[in-house]
Design a protein around this nucleic acid. Structure first.
Length: 553
RNA sequence: GGCCCCAUCGUCUAGCCUGGUCCAGGACACCUCCCUUUCAAGGAGGACACAUGGGUUCGAAUCCCAUUGGGGUCACCA
């Protein structure tokens, strides 16, 4: 293979470990990497870091790629996935590149830049504990190991003793050049002889990253700030291997509003709280496996799988916090809004501009405008952005996207509405929808059978009873009027009910609208009442009103 | 604890590099009022920040130092 890769072309990469779900933090990293490369006519590479056999048992679980594409983040090279990916620098799964790493491992070994080490996990843990006890940082010193003669090392290896390969870090301070943070120098001794190949033969993250970034021609490494110190390790590796050094940019972290790290564990946290408050000792049927549940209860560090966690939350009436991109999709957020909002966490185009699309981001994203400070993820502002975007949609677009969301998330709801009903519901809900989920969440009464509707006791007491004439009295006299009303359109109903309110309630429409609303939907919230009646249709509306009167009369 | 990084309204941020136009701008949230058949939405107002202390300078949110506070990292995880 020739090395004619033009050095001027920008290449960035997003390199997550395999997972079925894309975290919003990861999404932002991917978005920035994508925007940076694409805005400069470069390439964006996706690489799967599956060198941890314990966690990557299901190496095919790269479901998050779907989330990436949903957000509009496509990649030029990477695993093949629904028409995306492929490329000349594959394979893009690190677990499939073991022979490549071995070559460079050998080079390091020959150079004397790496050596075998035989300490057991237990020994290392003891050393770490000791360091911690003395309040000292743990640093592995390879002197003893390196002093061992090669013959003995060979013998131990031959005997099948488990061994790792460590990098021999030379003395000296290491300076990291960072396009976002500026330069930072780690003093001599900060980087110890870290492991580059594990006992199971897999490279560690540090080693695989350095080799792959070089081979894949990555020019700019943009990743979260938690990787900052790792960059020092990568730099010394690059130097030892004679590799080029990419430009680094460490992105500020994204936190929860309370300052804690945003983590999928937050879901477990919410569930544990609800379970504890409810004094629940066994999982509701069909939610979580009882054995798993017991183990989960016992060990606070364990996490439930996403699907069981969702079932459990639903059955307990708990709201799980949105953490993954898919959570936000399910909650009815728009991908373009998520991208827009995510960009604003850590970057801004300057001035007062804050609403923009991915094309704008691509054209304007620049490292010099990335902020250094961590951001707290403000869901309320995201919600406001989503509302604004929905309001900005045409009627057709709103219908189309709501229908798509409904087909995916609420097929049973969709099945119960005629196309005309659905359209009317969309019109009645458009300007009040903060998410695509709102319509489905707040209009459940429409899909309930007329004779199965239940009324909220509190609301009944407040709206239907009380002063005289009370709501029920109004309903009784209004039902006669409505019964004779043949044109059940919104405007016609208004033409009937408003005059009724004039004569019976001194023009106070609320006095009659609320009892009506409660009668037909069971609660105090619905779209405007005339729309609500129209959507339900005359037969259904009348049945509900009559049943309400007889039930509460 | 060692090392590294950071510090503008409650939150995301503009301004900082190239000191004066900033008694600090926008957005979300919040408060008040208006509109109103519910919930929203919408309209009009309002309150709210340069962490602290020293310098440098005629002048500092902007430059320097210290303090304080916050974060990251210290794995055969990535």
């Amino acid at each position: 293979m020739s090395h004619t890769t033009p050095t001027s072309a920008v290449v960035t990469r997003f390199a997550p470990s395999p997972s079925g779900h894309l975290h919003v933090g990861g999404a932002r990293t991917a978005l920035f990497c994508w925007a940076f490369a694409k805005g400069r006519g470069g390439k964006f590479v996706l690489r799967i870091e599956d060198t941890d056999q314990k966690r990557s048992s299901d190496a095919a679980s790269i479901g998050f790629v779907r989330d990436l594409l949903w957000l509009g983040i496509n990649f030029d090279e990477g695993p093949e996935y629904e028409g995306q990916g492929g490329g000349a620098h594959g394979p893009y799964f690190q677990a499939q590149r073991l022979d490549i790493y071995q070559k460079y491992l050998d080079q390091l070994l020959e150079q004397g830049s790496a050596y075998y080490a035989f300490e057991s996990q237990e020994e290392l843990a003891a050393m770490r504990a000791q360091a911690k006890e003395k309040n000292q940082p743990f640093r592995y010193t390879g002197d003893a190991a390196r002093r061992r003669d090669p013959a003995q090392t060979a013998q131990r290896l031959k005997a099948g003793e488990p061994a790792v390969i460590r990098f021999h870090t030379r003395a000296g301070a290491i300076t990291i050049h960072d396009e976002i943070l500026g330069d930072a120098t780690l003093p001599d001794g900060e980087v110890d002889d870290f492991v580059i190949r594990k006992a199971d033969g897999f490279p560690t993250y540090h080693f695989a990253v350095v080799v792959d970034d070089e081979l894949m021609g990555v020019t700019h490494v943009l990743r979260a700030q938690e990787h900052f110190n790792n960059s020092a390790k990568h730099i010394v590796l690059q130097d030892a291997l004679g590799f080029r050094r990419p430009v680094y940019g460490h992105l500020p972290l994204i936190f929860n509003p309370d300052g804690s790290k945003m983590s999928k564990r937050d879901k477990d946290k919410v569930l544990r709280k609800v379970v504890a408050q409810g004094g629940i000792t066994a999982p509701p049927l069909g939610t979580v496996d009882p054995v798993v549940f017991a183990a989960w209860l016992k060990d606070k560090n364990t996490q439930l799988e996403i699907e069981p966690a969702q079932r459990l939350a639903e059955s307990l009436g708990a709201e799980l916090p949105e953490i993954n991109v898919d959570d936000f999709r399910r909650s009815g957020y728009l991908p373009e809004v998520i991208c827009n909002f995510l960009s604003l966490n850590g970057w801004s185009p300057g001035g007062d501009v804050e609403k923009f699309d991915n094309a704008f981001l691509q054209a304007n994203f620049d490292l010099s405008r990335v902020v250094k400070t961590a951001a707290k993820f403000d869901r309320l502002k995201l919600l406001a952005f989503n509302l604004h975007a929905i309001q900005g949609m045409s009627r057709e677009e709103f219908v189309r996207r709501t229908r798509a969301h409904g087909a995916l998330m609420h097929p049973e709801f969709m099945a119960k509405l005629t196309p005309e009903q659905f359209l009317a519901l969309c019109d009645a809900s458009h300007e009040r929808s903060k998410t695509l989920e709102d319509l489905f969440r707040t209009n459940g009464f429409i899909t309930i059978a007329d004779d199965a509707l239940e009324w909220d006791a509190k609301v009944v007491a407040k709206v239907l009873r009380g002063d005289s004439p009370c709501g029920l009295d109004h309903l009784r006299s209004l039902r006669v009027v409505l019964r004779d009303c043949d044109d059940w359109s919104s405007s016609s109903l208004e033409g009937v009910i408003k005059p009724f309110a004039d004569t019976h309630c001194e023009g106070n429409v609320g006095k009659i609208a609320q009892p009506l609303r409660v009668a037909v939907c069971g609660g105090s919230v619905s779209p405007p009442i005339f729309d609500t009646l129209m959507i339900l249709g005359k037969a259904s509306s009348m049945r509900r009103i009559d049943r309400c009167i007889s039930t509460h009369g």
